[in-house]
Nucleic acid binder design. Structure first.
Length: 536
RNA sequence: GCGCUCGUAGCUCAAUUGGAUAGAGCAUCUGACUACGGAUCAGAAGGUUGGGGAUUCGAAUUCCUCCGAGCGCACCA
Protein backbone atom coordinates (compact mmCIF):
# COMPACT_ATOMS: atom_id res chain seq x y z
CA UNK A 1 0.00 0.00 0.00
CA UNK A 2 1.45 3.33 -1.01
CA UNK A 3 1.35 6.42 1.15
CA UNK A 4 -1.26 7.91 -1.20
CA UNK A 5 -3.55 4.91 -0.65
CA UNK A 6 -3.04 5.15 3.09
CA UNK A 7 -3.97 8.82 3.15
CA UNK A 8 -7.01 8.23 0.94
CA UNK A 9 -8.19 5.63 3.44
CA UNK A 10 -7.73 8.09 6.30
CA UNK A 11 -9.71 10.76 4.46
CA UNK A 12 -12.55 8.35 3.72
CA UNK A 13 -12.66 7.38 7.36
CA UNK A 14 -12.71 11.03 8.45
CA UNK A 15 -15.56 11.76 6.06
CA UNK A 16 -17.45 8.89 7.63
CA UNK A 17 -16.92 10.47 11.05
CA UNK A 18 -18.26 13.77 9.76
CA UNK A 19 -21.30 12.01 8.34
CA UNK A 20 -20.50 12.84 4.72
CA UNK A 21 -21.36 10.25 2.10
CA UNK A 22 -18.94 9.79 -0.78
CA UNK A 23 -21.40 8.44 -3.36
CA UNK A 24 -19.32 8.01 -6.51
CA UNK A 25 -16.69 10.58 -5.65
CA UNK A 26 -13.32 8.90 -5.37
CA UNK A 27 -10.77 10.16 -2.89
CA UNK A 28 -7.44 10.39 -4.54
CA UNK A 29 -4.19 12.08 -3.70
CA UNK A 30 -2.13 14.06 -6.17
CA UNK A 31 1.36 15.33 -6.16
CA UNK A 32 1.08 19.12 -6.32
CA UNK A 33 2.95 20.85 -9.10
CA UNK A 34 4.82 22.89 -6.50
CA UNK A 35 6.63 21.51 -3.54
CA UNK A 36 5.47 24.44 -1.37
CA UNK A 37 1.97 22.95 -1.62
CA UNK A 38 3.14 19.88 0.21
CA UNK A 39 4.09 16.37 -0.79
CA UNK A 40 0.58 15.17 -1.48
CA UNK A 41 -2.68 16.98 -1.92
CA UNK A 42 -6.38 16.18 -2.10
CA UNK A 43 -9.13 18.17 -3.79
CA UNK A 44 -11.85 16.20 -2.01
CA UNK A 45 -13.30 19.28 -0.29
CA UNK A 46 -13.64 21.03 -3.65
CA UNK A 47 -15.35 18.01 -5.12
CA UNK A 48 -17.82 17.54 -2.25
CA UNK A 49 -18.54 21.16 -1.28
CA UNK A 50 -21.65 21.54 -3.41
CA UNK A 51 -23.14 18.23 -2.28
CA UNK A 52 -22.50 19.05 1.39
CA UNK A 53 -23.74 22.58 1.01
CA UNK A 54 -20.80 24.45 2.48
CA UNK A 55 -17.90 26.36 1.04
CA UNK A 56 -14.89 24.34 -0.09
CA UNK A 57 -12.56 26.06 2.38
CA UNK A 58 -14.90 25.54 5.29
CA UNK A 59 -15.29 21.85 4.47
CA UNK A 60 -11.57 21.47 3.96
CA UNK A 61 -11.05 23.02 7.38
CA UNK A 62 -13.23 20.42 9.07
CA UNK A 63 -11.53 17.55 7.25
CA UNK A 64 -8.17 19.00 8.11
CA UNK A 65 -8.97 19.34 11.83
CA UNK A 66 -10.17 15.76 12.04
CA UNK A 67 -7.02 14.56 10.28
CA UNK A 68 -4.81 16.55 12.63
CA UNK A 69 -6.39 14.74 15.56
CA UNK A 70 -5.01 11.48 14.22
CA UNK A 71 -1.52 10.10 14.16
CA UNK A 72 -0.67 8.96 10.64
CA UNK A 73 2.63 7.39 9.71
CA UNK A 74 5.06 9.72 7.87
CA UNK A 75 2.64 12.69 8.09
CA UNK A 76 4.19 15.86 9.53
CA UNK A 77 1.41 18.35 8.88
CA UNK A 78 -2.00 18.75 7.26
CA UNK A 79 -3.19 22.14 6.14
CA UNK A 80 -5.82 23.88 4.05
CA UNK A 81 -4.58 25.92 1.12
CA UNK A 82 -5.82 27.82 -1.90
CA UNK A 83 -9.49 27.37 -2.78
CA UNK A 84 -9.81 24.37 -0.46
CA UNK A 85 -7.08 21.85 -1.07
CA UNK A 86 -6.01 19.63 1.81
CA UNK A 87 -2.24 19.44 1.69
CA UNK A 88 -0.06 16.90 3.42
CA UNK A 89 3.54 17.44 4.33
CA UNK A 90 5.47 14.23 4.88
CA UNK A 91 8.62 13.27 6.72
CA UNK A 92 11.53 12.05 4.62
CA UNK A 93 10.91 8.63 6.08
CA UNK A 94 8.17 8.01 3.49
CA UNK A 95 10.76 8.31 0.73
CA UNK A 96 13.16 6.03 2.57
CA UNK A 97 10.35 3.48 2.65
CA UNK A 98 9.99 3.91 -1.12
CA UNK A 99 13.67 3.15 -1.56
CA UNK A 100 13.35 -0.05 0.45
CA UNK A 101 10.35 -1.13 -1.62
CA UNK A 102 12.11 -0.45 -4.93
CA UNK A 103 15.21 -2.49 -4.15
CA UNK A 104 13.28 -5.25 -2.38
CA UNK A 105 10.89 -5.76 -5.28
CA UNK A 106 13.54 -5.11 -7.91
CA UNK A 107 13.33 -4.95 -11.68
CA UNK A 108 10.88 -7.81 -11.92
CA UNK A 109 8.33 -6.77 -9.33
CA UNK A 110 8.51 -3.05 -8.56
CA UNK A 111 5.69 -1.29 -10.37
CA UNK A 112 4.33 -4.58 -11.68
CA UNK A 113 0.58 -4.09 -11.77
CA UNK A 114 -2.44 -6.26 -12.32
CA UNK A 115 -4.75 -3.88 -14.13
CA UNK A 116 -5.49 -6.30 -16.95
CA UNK A 117 -6.38 -9.20 -14.67
CA UNK A 118 -5.20 -11.63 -17.29
CA UNK A 119 -7.48 -10.32 -20.02
CA UNK A 120 -6.44 -11.64 -23.44
CA UNK A 121 -5.70 -8.73 -25.71
CA UNK A 122 -4.34 -8.61 -29.22
CA UNK A 123 -2.39 -5.63 -30.45
CA UNK A 124 -2.21 -5.35 -34.24
CA UNK A 125 0.18 -2.80 -35.67
CA UNK A 126 2.41 -1.82 -38.59
CA UNK A 127 0.58 -4.16 -41.02
CA UNK A 128 2.16 -2.18 -43.85
CA UNK A 129 1.42 -3.51 -47.33
CA UNK A 130 4.37 -5.54 -48.62
CA UNK A 131 4.71 -3.28 -51.62
CA UNK A 132 7.75 -1.35 -50.50
CA UNK A 133 10.21 -0.81 -47.66
CA UNK A 134 9.02 0.58 -44.36
CA UNK A 135 9.21 4.33 -43.97
CA UNK A 136 9.75 6.38 -40.85
CA UNK A 137 6.02 6.60 -40.12
CA UNK A 138 5.78 2.80 -39.99
CA UNK A 139 8.68 2.80 -37.55
CA UNK A 140 6.92 5.30 -35.32
CA UNK A 141 3.78 3.22 -35.03
CA UNK A 142 5.87 0.06 -34.85
CA UNK A 143 7.68 1.33 -31.77
CA UNK A 144 4.36 2.44 -30.37
CA UNK A 145 2.67 -0.91 -30.79
CA UNK A 146 5.64 -2.85 -29.48
CA UNK A 147 6.07 -0.61 -26.43
CA UNK A 148 2.32 -0.72 -25.75
CA UNK A 149 2.42 -4.51 -25.82
CA UNK A 150 5.33 -4.59 -23.36
CA UNK A 151 3.55 -2.12 -21.12
CA UNK A 152 0.28 -4.06 -21.10
CA UNK A 153 2.15 -7.27 -20.31
CA UNK A 154 3.78 -5.69 -17.28
CA UNK A 155 0.39 -4.41 -16.15
CA UNK A 156 -1.34 -7.77 -16.13
CA UNK A 157 -2.71 -8.29 -19.61
CA UNK A 158 -2.07 -11.41 -21.67
CA UNK A 159 -0.87 -9.87 -24.89
CA UNK A 160 -0.39 -11.16 -28.41
CA UNK A 161 1.07 -8.96 -31.15
CA UNK A 162 0.17 -9.33 -34.79
CA UNK A 163 1.05 -8.07 -38.26
CA UNK A 164 -1.74 -8.33 -40.85
CA UNK A 165 -0.14 -9.00 -44.19
CA UNK A 166 -2.08 -7.56 -47.13
CA UNK A 167 -0.73 -10.10 -49.56
CA UNK A 168 -3.56 -10.03 -52.07
CA UNK A 169 -5.65 -7.68 -54.15
CA UNK A 170 -4.98 -4.82 -56.51
CA UNK A 171 -1.87 -3.50 -54.83
CA UNK A 172 -0.08 -6.79 -55.16
CA UNK A 173 -1.24 -7.08 -58.75
CA UNK A 174 0.12 -3.61 -59.40
CA UNK A 175 3.37 -4.59 -57.76
CA UNK A 176 3.63 -7.57 -60.08
CA UNK A 177 2.98 -5.38 -63.10
CA UNK A 178 5.65 -2.95 -61.95
CA UNK A 179 8.21 -5.74 -61.61
CA UNK A 180 7.38 -7.17 -65.03
CA UNK A 181 7.55 -3.74 -66.62
CA UNK A 182 10.97 -3.12 -65.15
CA UNK A 183 12.20 -6.53 -66.22
CA UNK A 184 11.23 -5.92 -69.82
CA UNK A 185 12.68 -2.42 -69.70
CA UNK A 186 9.32 -0.67 -69.99
CA UNK A 187 8.02 2.26 -68.00
CA UNK A 188 6.23 1.42 -64.75
CA UNK A 189 2.46 1.92 -65.07
CA UNK A 190 0.88 5.14 -63.83
CA UNK A 191 -0.44 3.64 -60.57
CA UNK A 192 2.58 1.37 -60.15
CA UNK A 193 5.55 1.42 -57.79
CA UNK A 194 8.46 3.56 -58.92
CA UNK A 195 11.07 2.92 -56.24
CA UNK A 196 14.54 1.61 -56.96
CA UNK A 197 13.76 -1.56 -55.00
CA UNK A 198 11.36 -2.59 -57.79
CA UNK A 199 14.25 -2.53 -60.23
CA UNK A 200 16.32 -4.73 -57.92
CA UNK A 201 13.45 -7.18 -57.57
CA UNK A 202 12.99 -7.25 -61.34
CA UNK A 203 16.64 -8.16 -61.79
CA UNK A 204 16.35 -11.03 -59.31
CA UNK A 205 12.98 -12.33 -60.49
CA UNK A 206 13.36 -15.40 -62.69
CA UNK A 207 9.76 -16.59 -62.87
CA UNK A 208 7.27 -16.46 -65.74
CA UNK A 209 5.71 -13.32 -67.22
CA UNK A 210 2.73 -13.67 -64.93
CA UNK A 211 1.47 -10.72 -62.90
CA UNK A 212 0.36 -13.06 -60.11
CA UNK A 213 3.70 -14.88 -59.88
CA UNK A 214 5.74 -11.70 -60.07
CA UNK A 215 3.52 -10.01 -57.49
CA UNK A 216 3.70 -12.93 -55.08
CA UNK A 217 7.45 -13.15 -55.46
CA UNK A 218 7.97 -9.43 -54.92
CA UNK A 219 5.64 -9.30 -51.92
CA UNK A 220 7.43 -12.19 -50.24
CA UNK A 221 10.83 -10.63 -50.81
CA UNK A 222 9.69 -7.26 -49.53
CA UNK A 223 8.14 -8.86 -46.46
CA UNK A 224 11.47 -10.50 -45.67
CA UNK A 225 13.23 -7.16 -45.71
CA UNK A 226 10.45 -5.61 -43.61
CA UNK A 227 11.09 -8.26 -40.97
CA UNK A 228 14.79 -7.46 -40.99
CA UNK A 229 14.09 -3.78 -40.48
CA UNK A 230 11.71 -4.46 -37.58
CA UNK A 231 14.29 -6.80 -36.05
CA UNK A 232 16.76 -3.96 -35.90
CA UNK A 233 14.36 -2.05 -33.65
CA UNK A 234 13.59 -5.06 -31.49
CA UNK A 235 9.98 -5.05 -32.64
CA UNK A 236 8.54 -8.51 -32.21
CA UNK A 237 5.36 -10.03 -33.62
CA UNK A 238 3.80 -13.20 -32.26
CA UNK A 239 1.79 -13.72 -35.43
CA UNK A 240 2.02 -12.77 -39.11
CA UNK A 241 -1.49 -13.17 -40.45
CA UNK A 242 -2.07 -13.51 -44.17
CA UNK A 243 -5.00 -11.74 -45.78
CA UNK A 244 -4.88 -14.20 -48.67
CA UNK A 245 -5.36 -17.09 -46.24
CA UNK A 246 -8.61 -15.52 -45.10
CA UNK A 247 -9.96 -15.07 -48.58
CA UNK A 248 -9.02 -18.61 -49.57
CA UNK A 249 -10.50 -20.23 -46.49
CA UNK A 250 -14.16 -19.47 -46.99
CA UNK A 251 -14.19 -17.37 -43.84
CA UNK A 252 -15.61 -14.43 -45.75
CA UNK A 253 -18.67 -16.45 -46.69
CA UNK A 254 -19.17 -17.57 -43.09
CA UNK A 255 -18.79 -14.01 -41.87
CA UNK A 256 -21.40 -12.68 -44.28
CA UNK A 257 -23.76 -15.50 -43.32
CA UNK A 258 -23.44 -14.45 -39.71
CA UNK A 259 -24.42 -10.90 -40.55
CA UNK A 260 -27.18 -12.05 -42.88
CA UNK A 261 -28.71 -13.98 -39.99
CA UNK A 262 -28.94 -10.67 -38.16
CA UNK A 263 -30.75 -9.15 -41.14
CA UNK A 264 -27.97 -6.70 -41.91
CA UNK A 265 -27.18 -7.87 -45.46
CA UNK A 266 -28.96 -7.07 -48.71
CA UNK A 267 -28.38 -7.44 -52.44
CA UNK A 268 -28.45 -4.53 -54.82
CA UNK A 269 -27.02 -4.03 -58.30
CA UNK A 270 -25.51 -7.52 -58.30
CA UNK A 271 -23.47 -6.64 -55.20
CA UNK A 272 -23.83 -7.72 -51.58
CA UNK A 273 -24.15 -4.87 -49.09
CA UNK A 274 -23.78 -4.40 -45.35
CA UNK A 275 -26.47 -2.22 -43.82
CA UNK A 276 -23.82 -0.33 -41.87
CA UNK A 277 -25.81 2.93 -41.67
CA UNK A 278 -27.94 1.20 -39.05
CA UNK A 279 -24.80 0.88 -36.94
CA UNK A 280 -23.49 4.39 -37.13
CA UNK A 281 -21.68 4.44 -40.46
CA UNK A 282 -22.27 7.28 -42.91
CA UNK A 283 -23.18 4.93 -45.76
CA UNK A 284 -23.81 1.28 -46.47
CA UNK A 285 -20.80 -0.72 -47.64
CA UNK A 286 -20.26 -3.27 -50.37
CA UNK A 287 -18.91 -6.62 -49.19
CA UNK A 288 -19.10 -8.64 -52.41
CA UNK A 289 -18.62 -6.76 -55.65
CA UNK A 290 -20.78 -7.39 -58.74
CA UNK A 291 -17.89 -9.39 -60.22
CA UNK A 292 -17.96 -11.75 -57.25
CA UNK A 293 -14.77 -10.56 -55.54
CA UNK A 294 -14.76 -9.71 -51.84
CA UNK A 295 -13.95 -6.13 -50.90
CA UNK A 296 -11.17 -5.24 -48.50
CA UNK A 297 -13.78 -4.57 -45.83
CA UNK A 298 -15.24 -8.06 -46.21
CA UNK A 299 -11.82 -9.57 -45.66
CA UNK A 300 -11.17 -7.25 -42.75
CA UNK A 301 -14.44 -8.21 -41.08
CA UNK A 302 -13.70 -11.89 -41.58
CA UNK A 303 -10.32 -11.18 -40.02
CA UNK A 304 -11.89 -9.47 -37.01
CA UNK A 305 -14.42 -12.24 -36.63
CA UNK A 306 -11.44 -14.57 -36.50
CA UNK A 307 -9.78 -12.43 -33.82
CA UNK A 308 -12.80 -12.23 -31.57
CA UNK A 309 -14.92 -15.31 -32.22
CA UNK A 310 -12.43 -17.92 -33.40
CA UNK A 311 -9.27 -17.07 -31.48
CA UNK A 312 -11.20 -15.64 -28.57
CA UNK A 313 -9.45 -12.38 -27.81
CA UNK A 314 -11.44 -10.44 -25.26
CA UNK A 315 -10.04 -7.17 -26.51
CA UNK A 316 -8.42 -6.08 -29.74
CA UNK A 317 -6.33 -2.97 -30.24
CA UNK A 318 -5.75 -1.93 -33.85
CA UNK A 319 -3.06 0.66 -34.43
CA UNK A 320 -3.62 2.54 -37.69
CA UNK A 321 -2.08 5.54 -39.33
CA UNK A 322 -4.38 8.55 -39.41
CA UNK A 323 -4.72 8.16 -43.17
CA UNK A 324 -6.83 5.07 -42.48
CA UNK A 325 -9.32 6.78 -40.21
CA UNK A 326 -11.89 6.64 -42.99
CA UNK A 327 -12.27 2.91 -42.49
CA UNK A 328 -12.86 3.03 -38.74
CA UNK A 329 -16.61 3.69 -38.81
CA UNK A 330 -17.31 0.81 -41.18
CA UNK A 331 -15.02 -1.52 -39.28
CA UNK A 332 -16.75 -0.73 -36.00
CA UNK A 333 -20.15 -1.10 -37.61
CA UNK A 334 -19.11 -4.42 -39.10
CA UNK A 335 -17.80 -5.73 -35.80
CA UNK A 336 -21.09 -4.85 -34.16
CA UNK A 337 -22.94 -6.51 -37.04
CA UNK A 338 -21.15 -9.69 -36.01
CA UNK A 339 -22.69 -9.42 -32.56
CA UNK A 340 -19.47 -8.28 -30.92
CA UNK A 341 -19.66 -5.48 -28.39
CA UNK A 342 -17.84 -2.65 -30.11
CA UNK A 343 -16.18 -1.51 -26.90
CA UNK A 344 -14.00 -4.60 -27.21
CA UNK A 345 -12.36 -3.08 -30.28
CA UNK A 346 -10.05 -0.13 -29.78
CA UNK A 347 -8.70 1.67 -32.79
CA UNK A 348 -5.70 3.84 -32.04
CA UNK A 349 -5.05 6.36 -34.78
CA UNK A 350 -1.48 7.58 -35.01
CA UNK A 351 -1.10 11.03 -36.44
CA UNK A 352 1.21 11.06 -39.39
CA UNK A 353 4.88 11.80 -39.09
CA UNK A 354 5.88 14.56 -41.42
CA UNK A 355 9.31 15.77 -42.28
CA UNK A 356 10.51 19.31 -42.32
CA UNK A 357 11.48 18.81 -45.94
CA UNK A 358 8.26 17.56 -47.52
CA UNK A 359 6.04 14.71 -46.47
CA UNK A 360 6.48 11.02 -46.93
CA UNK A 361 4.61 9.09 -49.55
CA UNK A 362 5.27 5.52 -50.48
CA UNK A 363 4.14 5.88 -54.09
CA UNK A 364 6.28 8.82 -55.08
CA UNK A 365 9.44 7.02 -54.03
CA UNK A 366 10.96 10.03 -52.24
CA UNK A 367 9.98 8.99 -48.72
CA UNK A 368 12.56 8.40 -46.02
CA UNK A 369 13.16 4.76 -45.36
CA UNK A 370 13.17 3.56 -41.77
CA UNK A 371 16.43 1.73 -42.46
CA UNK A 372 18.12 4.97 -43.45
CA UNK A 373 17.11 6.63 -40.20
CA UNK A 374 18.35 3.67 -38.16
CA UNK A 375 21.63 3.76 -40.08
CA UNK A 376 22.01 7.42 -39.16
CA UNK A 377 21.10 7.53 -35.48
CA UNK A 378 20.96 3.89 -34.37
CA UNK A 379 18.10 1.73 -33.11
CA UNK A 380 17.99 3.11 -29.56
CA UNK A 381 17.70 6.71 -30.65
CA UNK A 382 15.13 5.78 -33.28
CA UNK A 383 12.97 4.06 -30.70
CA UNK A 384 13.23 6.78 -28.10
CA UNK A 385 12.56 9.52 -30.65
CA UNK A 386 9.45 7.73 -31.83
CA UNK A 387 8.21 7.28 -28.26
CA UNK A 388 8.75 10.88 -27.19
CA UNK A 389 5.24 12.15 -27.71
CA UNK A 390 1.63 11.07 -27.85
CA UNK A 391 0.53 9.47 -31.11
CA UNK A 392 -2.45 11.83 -31.00
CA UNK A 393 -0.02 14.60 -31.73
CA UNK A 394 1.06 14.98 -35.32
CA UNK A 395 4.81 15.12 -35.14
CA UNK A 396 7.28 16.89 -37.31
CA UNK A 397 10.68 15.37 -37.66
CA UNK A 398 13.57 17.58 -38.57
CA UNK A 399 15.79 14.99 -40.16
CA UNK A 400 18.79 17.29 -40.38
CA UNK A 401 18.60 18.11 -36.67
CA UNK A 402 18.10 14.50 -35.63
CA UNK A 403 20.98 13.17 -37.69
CA UNK A 404 23.49 15.99 -37.42
CA UNK A 405 23.13 16.34 -33.66
CA UNK A 406 22.74 12.71 -32.86
CA UNK A 407 25.03 13.13 -29.85
CA UNK A 408 22.52 15.56 -28.46
CA UNK A 409 19.67 13.11 -28.63
CA UNK A 410 17.75 12.53 -25.36
CA UNK A 411 18.58 8.84 -25.54
CA UNK A 412 22.20 9.60 -24.63
CA UNK A 413 21.13 11.67 -21.66
CA UNK A 414 19.20 8.72 -20.28
CA UNK A 415 21.74 6.07 -21.17
CA UNK A 416 24.51 8.20 -19.72
CA UNK A 417 22.76 8.08 -16.35
CA UNK A 418 22.76 4.31 -16.54
CA UNK A 419 26.41 4.24 -17.58
CA UNK A 420 27.31 6.47 -14.62
CA UNK A 421 25.59 4.07 -12.27
CA UNK A 422 27.54 1.19 -13.71
CA UNK A 423 30.70 3.24 -13.43
CA UNK A 424 30.11 3.75 -9.71
CA UNK A 425 29.92 -0.01 -9.38
CA UNK A 426 33.22 -0.42 -11.17
CA UNK A 427 34.92 2.14 -8.94
CA UNK A 428 33.54 0.40 -5.85
CA UNK A 429 35.12 -2.79 -7.04
CA UNK A 430 38.48 -1.11 -7.67
CA UNK A 431 38.52 0.49 -4.24
CA UNK A 432 37.14 -2.50 -2.41
CA UNK A 433 34.02 -0.69 -1.21
CA UNK A 434 31.34 -3.18 -0.27
CA UNK A 435 27.65 -2.35 -0.04
CA UNK A 436 26.12 -3.81 3.11
CA UNK A 437 22.65 -5.32 3.38
CA UNK A 438 19.99 -2.63 3.24
CA UNK A 439 18.57 -3.41 6.69
CA UNK A 440 22.01 -2.69 8.15
CA UNK A 441 22.16 0.71 6.46
CA UNK A 442 20.79 3.90 7.99
CA UNK A 443 18.76 5.45 5.17
CA UNK A 444 17.77 8.43 7.29
CA UNK A 445 20.98 10.19 6.24
CA UNK A 446 19.34 10.67 2.85
CA UNK A 447 17.96 14.18 3.21
CA UNK A 448 19.63 16.24 0.50
CA UNK A 449 17.06 17.79 -1.89
CA UNK A 450 18.74 15.99 -4.78
CA UNK A 451 18.43 12.66 -3.04
CA UNK A 452 14.79 13.27 -2.21
CA UNK A 453 14.06 14.30 -5.81
CA UNK A 454 15.35 10.97 -7.08
CA UNK A 455 13.19 9.07 -4.60
CA UNK A 456 10.12 11.13 -5.43
CA UNK A 457 10.57 10.19 -9.10
CA UNK A 458 10.87 6.53 -8.24
CA UNK A 459 7.72 6.77 -6.13
CA UNK A 460 5.74 7.87 -9.20
CA UNK A 461 6.66 4.89 -11.37
CA UNK A 462 3.67 2.67 -10.48
CA UNK A 463 1.20 5.45 -11.15
CA UNK A 464 3.05 6.41 -14.33
CA UNK A 465 2.71 2.85 -15.61
CA UNK A 466 -0.93 2.73 -14.59
CA UNK A 467 -1.69 5.87 -16.57
CA UNK A 468 0.44 4.86 -19.52
CA UNK A 469 -1.27 1.47 -19.74
CA UNK A 470 -4.85 2.63 -19.30
CA UNK A 471 -4.40 5.51 -21.72
CA UNK A 472 -2.38 3.38 -24.15
CA UNK A 473 0.29 6.04 -23.92
CA UNK A 474 3.84 4.63 -23.73
CA UNK A 475 5.29 8.13 -24.19
CA UNK A 476 4.53 8.68 -20.51
CA UNK A 477 7.18 6.10 -19.74
CA UNK A 478 9.61 8.09 -21.86
CA UNK A 479 8.79 11.22 -19.90
CA UNK A 480 9.35 9.30 -16.69
CA UNK A 481 12.72 7.94 -17.68
CA UNK A 482 13.93 11.34 -18.84
CA UNK A 483 12.85 12.87 -15.53
CA UNK A 484 14.45 10.13 -13.47
CA UNK A 485 17.68 10.41 -15.43
CA UNK A 486 17.62 14.17 -14.88
CA UNK A 487 17.12 13.79 -11.14
CA UNK A 488 19.94 11.30 -11.03
CA UNK A 489 22.34 13.57 -12.92
CA UNK A 490 21.52 16.32 -10.42
CA UNK A 491 22.16 13.98 -7.52
CA UNK A 492 25.38 12.75 -9.07
CA UNK A 493 26.58 16.30 -9.54
CA UNK A 494 25.87 17.46 -5.99
CA UNK A 495 26.13 14.33 -3.87
CA UNK A 496 29.28 12.33 -4.04
CA UNK A 497 28.88 8.66 -3.33
CA UNK A 498 32.55 7.73 -2.86
CA UNK A 499 35.59 9.66 -1.76
CA UNK A 500 37.35 11.39 1.09
CA UNK A 501 34.75 13.97 2.05
CA UNK A 502 31.97 11.40 2.25
CA UNK A 503 31.12 9.57 5.45
CA UNK A 504 30.79 5.81 5.51
CA UNK A 505 27.11 6.15 6.40
CA UNK A 506 26.48 8.44 3.42
CA UNK A 507 28.32 6.15 1.06
CA UNK A 508 26.24 3.16 2.15
CA UNK A 509 22.90 4.95 1.93
CA UNK A 510 23.76 6.53 -1.40
CA UNK A 511 24.86 3.22 -2.88
CA UNK A 512 21.34 2.00 -2.24
CA UNK A 513 19.88 5.13 -3.77
CA UNK A 514 22.01 4.43 -6.84
CA UNK A 515 20.78 0.86 -6.94
CA UNK A 516 17.16 1.97 -6.71
CA UNK A 517 17.73 4.35 -9.60
CA UNK A 518 19.21 1.53 -11.63
CA UNK A 519 16.07 -0.52 -11.01
CA UNK A 520 13.83 2.35 -12.10
CA UNK A 521 15.80 3.12 -15.25
CA UNK A 522 16.02 -0.53 -16.13
CA UNK A 523 12.27 -1.10 -15.85
CA UNK A 524 11.42 1.92 -17.98
CA UNK A 525 14.07 1.33 -20.64
CA UNK A 526 13.02 -2.29 -21.03
CA UNK A 527 9.42 -1.21 -21.56
CA UNK A 528 10.55 1.26 -24.20
CA UNK A 529 12.80 -1.27 -25.90
CA UNK A 530 15.86 0.92 -25.44
CA UNK A 531 19.08 -0.69 -24.25
CA UNK A 532 20.72 0.18 -20.95
CA UNK A 533 24.47 0.21 -21.63
CA UNK A 534 27.00 -0.15 -18.82
CA UNK A 535 29.51 1.88 -20.78
CA UNK A 536 29.19 4.36 -23.59
C1' G B 1 -19.02 20.53 -49.77
C1' C B 2 -19.24 16.65 -45.67
C1' G B 3 -16.54 13.89 -41.95
C1' C B 4 -12.27 12.58 -38.76
C1' U B 5 -7.79 14.27 -36.09
C1' C B 6 -5.48 18.46 -34.49
C1' G B 7 -3.72 23.90 -33.24
C1' U B 8 0.42 25.34 -26.42
C1' A B 9 7.61 29.49 -25.94
C1' G B 10 11.60 30.76 -32.15
C1' C B 11 11.71 24.81 -32.87
C1' U B 12 10.18 19.66 -30.91
C1' C B 13 6.87 18.29 -27.14
C1' A B 14 4.50 18.10 -21.67
C1' A B 15 0.69 19.63 -18.37
C1' U B 16 -1.38 14.49 -12.53
C1' U B 17 -7.71 14.02 -17.59
C1' G B 18 -11.56 20.28 -14.69
C1' G B 19 -7.05 22.21 -10.13
C1' A B 20 -3.16 26.24 -7.24
C1' U B 21 1.83 30.84 -10.55
C1' A B 22 0.94 26.44 -18.14
C1' G B 23 6.31 23.11 -17.60
C1' A B 24 10.78 20.35 -20.02
C1' G B 25 14.44 19.69 -23.99
C1' C B 26 16.79 22.13 -28.22
C1' A B 27 18.49 26.92 -29.91
C1' U B 28 20.31 32.02 -27.41
C1' C B 29 22.92 34.49 -23.23
C1' U B 30 25.61 33.87 -18.31
C1' G B 31 27.87 30.85 -14.75
C1' A B 32 29.95 25.82 -12.09
C1' C B 33 34.60 20.56 -10.62
C1' U B 34 42.63 19.54 -9.12
C1' A B 35 37.24 14.78 -6.27
C1' C B 36 32.68 8.47 -8.41
C1' G B 37 32.83 9.56 -16.56
C1' G B 38 31.54 17.59 -18.16
C1' A B 39 27.53 13.18 -23.27
C1' U B 40 26.85 16.70 -16.57
C1' C B 41 24.86 20.74 -13.32
C1' A B 42 22.91 25.89 -12.11
C1' G B 43 20.79 30.62 -13.68
C1' A B 44 18.54 34.20 -17.29
C1' A B 45 15.34 35.14 -21.24
C1' G B 46 11.29 33.26 -23.91
C1' G B 47 3.34 32.65 -23.47
C1' U B 48 -3.34 36.86 -24.57
C1' U B 49 -2.56 28.06 -24.81
C1' G B 50 -5.06 30.20 -33.11
C1' G B 51 -9.43 34.38 -32.29
C1' G B 52 -14.15 35.27 -29.80
C1' G B 53 -18.21 33.72 -26.71
C1' A B 54 -20.57 30.06 -22.92
C1' U B 55 -20.65 26.65 -18.57
C1' U B 56 -18.42 27.22 -12.53
C1' C B 57 -15.35 28.08 -6.90
C1' G B 58 -11.62 27.15 -11.09
C1' A B 59 -10.84 26.00 -18.34
C1' A B 60 -4.97 24.66 -22.43
C1' U B 61 -8.62 20.74 -21.11
C1' U B 62 -15.94 20.66 -21.64
C1' C B 63 -19.84 23.11 -25.17
C1' C B 64 -20.98 26.54 -29.28
C1' U B 65 -18.75 29.80 -33.27
C1' C B 66 -15.17 31.57 -36.60
C1' C B 67 -9.76 30.99 -38.53
C1' G B 68 -5.88 27.64 -39.93
C1' A B 69 -3.42 22.68 -40.84
C1' G B 70 -3.25 17.39 -41.95
C1' C B 71 -6.01 13.25 -43.49
C1' G B 72 -10.32 10.75 -45.38
C1' C B 73 -14.86 10.77 -48.25
C1' A B 74 -14.63 3.74 -54.09
C1' C B 75 -18.19 -2.34 -56.26
C1' C B 76 -9.03 0.55 -54.29
C1' A B 77 -6.52 -1.87 -50.54
Amino acid sequence: MTIADALATEISSVLGELGIALDDTVVHLERPARLEHGDLSSNIALALAKQVGSSPRELAGRICEALQARTIEHVVSVEVAGPGFVNFRLANSWLHAVLVAVVAEGVDDYARLDLGRGERVQVEFVSANPTGPLHVGNGWLGSYGDALARLLRRCGWQVSTEYYVNDTGNQIRMLGESVLARRSGNAVPEQGYQGAYVLELAERYEGPDSVEDAGRYAAEEILKSIRLTLDRLGIVFDEWYSQASIEESGKVTETIALMRARNLIYEEGDATWLRSTELGDVRDRVLIKANGDATYLAGDLAYHRDKFLVRGFERVIDVFGADHHGQVASLEAGVEALGIDRSRLEVKLGQLVSLVSGKMSKRSGNYVRLDELIDEIGPDATRLMSLMSSIDQSTTLDLDAVTAKSMDNPVFYVQYAYARISSIGRVCEERGVIRREIDEVDLSVLGHPRELDVLRSLYTLPSVLREAATERAPYKVTNFVRTLAGEFHGFYHDCRVLGDGVSEAETQARLWLVEATRVGLSIALTLLGVSAPEQM
